[in-house]
């Protein structure tokens, strides 16, 4: 691989060291060490219950680790959440909530707007642009409950884009969506990486779509492998992680 030059001045990655998480007394993640590099689309894969979502949540302080550090630019990442755009699993959201597409994408501007302030015209413009980017401009006044699963996911992607973040953490953005949404989201992930951002995506599918990731983190309560896609995707690693022979898109390796 040739070294990548970043248009963005921040060329540092996220450094995770000895991160360990327990749920009550059960070990959820054991001493994770890895680096997530900027300018790369990094996929996090592993079997169900491997702790993929937990790792993202621990990185952002949504669950409290028992030990370990997550640093970005030599500072704890949890102190720099204004640099992060997080996309929760779509299934965790109550889509009957009384809000329109516009309302939800606007939420991406809440922190940047600050307490007691109204949304600025800049924010409104950013939201309109993000909706246009995901192809939902015509849906801005729709109730979110009226959308298809793929459209709902695109609403969340648009919200993440409005946050003007440097670090993007997406939890299962490809779960239960249509082909069109999948290609829109992958395009956006590549664009973000090309702009030098840190892009981390929880993914559950080892099929053809895996070629969209530059780097992979393979997890099963512990770090099984991490590195470039070619380094991680081999039968030995996957068998170790999944505990069984597992089919994967071998041309990607």
């Amino acid at each position: 691989m040739t070294p990548i030059s970043f248009p963005n001045r921040q060329a540092e990655g996220i450094h995770i060291s000895e991160l360990e998480v327990h749920y009550r007394r059960v070990l959820a993640l054991k001493a994770i060490n890895c680096e997530i590099r900027p300018g790369r689309v990094t996929g996090m894969i592993g079997p169900n219950g491997a702790g993929k979502s937990t790792l993202i949540k621990a990185m952002l302080g949504l669950v409290t680790p028992v030990q370990g550090k997550v640093c970005f630019q030599n500072q704890p990442l949890t102190k720099q959440l204004d640099q992060v755009a997080y996309l929760p699993q779509r299934s965790k959201i109550d889509w009957t909530y009384p809000a329109t597409v516009w309302d939800v994408v606007m939420m991406g501007r809440v922190r940047k707007t600050g307490w007691f302030h109204r949304f600025s015209s800049v924010s409104r413009r950013l939201v309109a642009q993000a909706l246009d980017r995901v192809g939902l401009s015509d849906y801005r006044d729709r109730a979110i409950g009226e959308l298809s699963g793929g459209q709902q996911q695109r609403v969340f992607i648009a919200r993440a884009l409005t946050e003007q973040a440097h670090i993007f953490c997406f939890d299962e953005p490809f779960a239960g969506i249509d082909k069109k949404t999948e290609s829109v989201i992958f395009d956006i992930l590549h664009e973000l990486a090309e702009a030098g951002h840190i892009v981390l995506v929880v993914h559950h599918d080892l099929g053809h779509s895996i070629v969209n990731f530059d780097d992979l983190i393979l997890l099963n309560r512990e770090l099984v492998a991490h590195g470039t896609r070619k380094e991680v995707l081999n039968a030995e690693n996957l068998q170790y992680a999944y505990g069984d022979r597992i089919a994967f898109f071998s041309e990607a390796a």
């Binding site: 949540k57 952002l60 949504l62 204004d82 929760p88 809000a99 939420m107 809440v110 307490w115 953490c169």
Partner: peptide, 21 residues
Amino acid sequence: LLYKELLFYTFDPEGAQASGL
């Protein structure tokens, strides 16, 4: 005064927390 923050929090508590609220 807190309408936009409360809207974000009640719709998506984890997203709100991750944004630093």
